[in-house]
């Protein structure tokens, strides 16, 4: 390979990278500088946190942060509790109708709850759950993706370990808890990261099912904040935008390797 083509390729890769981060850099510039510099670049522009202070004061972001944290935690814990035994049953137990039930479950991979807004809203109305954090979470708790991912992992656990535990007198749930769950730890971390980032960012269903400050997650709160009475103060809107994305973004930058490997693990197979 000629040196010059290689050189051009590297330049190309860098150009693409610069185009890709430019929007974010621009957002950072706008958020950390006074409004009059939002669209004007100057090396002497003073840095400020004023935009963040204004945004924080203009809407109940603290409450939105709390709501999203509760939501994400609730979904994660419930998904683990619900999907683990189901995945184990599919991986290591014989029962009539296994393949049929497995196929029925996998249908959710293509038809996700996100598309079924109308039907799910009616169910929540009947259950009296409209405008609750539980209602945002419920459609996602029985996750076909989670069950499938854990099943694939459980299938790789050596049968001898299972047999050994059984000989020691370990019960079914004991084996699941002591043998399978510890060995599947990387998968749990991977699935956890995917789940948290998905639900931290989820928008349409929460928008539909919530209508008060006490239940709204960050994404919905941000969209309301940005669309009402802020005029076009881009500095404040951008500051709010960065603020709401910050926890996930900072976590990603700190634990980049784990994130990337987790997304890979969740996708491959």
């Amino acid at each position: 390979m000629k040196v010059s083509t290689r050189f051009l390729e590297i330049i190309g890769a860098w150009m693409l990278a610069i185009i890709w981060v430019l929007p974010l850099l621009y957002a950072l510039w706008t958020a950390f500088h006074p409004g009059e510099f939002a669209t004007r670049f100057s090396l002497t522009a003073p840095l400020t946190l004023e935009n963040f202070r204004n945004a924080w004061a203009a809407a109940p972001f603290a409450r939105y942060f709390l709501n999203t944290t509760i939501l994400v935690t609730l979904i994660l814990v419930a998904q683990f509790i619900v999907c683990t035994p189901a995945a184990f049953a599919f991986a290591r137990m014989e029962f009539a109708g296994r393949n049929v039930v497995f196929a029925i479950m996998l249908m959710q991979l293509m038809i996700m709850p996100d598309v079924l807004l109308v039907g799910n809203y009616r169910s929540m109305a009947k259950l009296g759950l409209v405008d609750t954090i539980l209602a945002i979470a419920l459609p996602y708790l029985g996750s076909a993706f989670g069950i499938f991912l854990l099943r694939q992992t459980f299938l790789t656990v050596p049968q001898q370990l299972d047999d050994a535990a059984r000989l020691e007198g370990c019960t079914l749930l004991g084996r699941l808890w002591r043998v399978y769950v510890p060995l599947a730890r990387p998968t749990y971390i991977a699935y956890g990261l995917v789940s948290v980032s998905y639900h931290w960012n989820n928008f349409l269903w929460p928008l539909v099912i919530t209508n008060s400050v006490n239940t709204r997650p960050l994404t919905v709160g941000l969209s309301i904040f940005a669309s009402t009475d802020q005029g076009i103060d881009w500095s404040i809107i951008t500051a709010a935008t960065l603020m709401t994305s910050a926890p996930l973004l900072v976590a990603f930058l700190l634990f980049q390797r784990q994130f990337v490997q987790s997304f890979m693990r969740a996708g491959i197979r």
Partner: peptide
Amino acid sequence: PALVLLVAFTH
């Protein structure tokens, strides 16, 4: 548990 939730909110 998984099946009930899945069917109730997808199927």
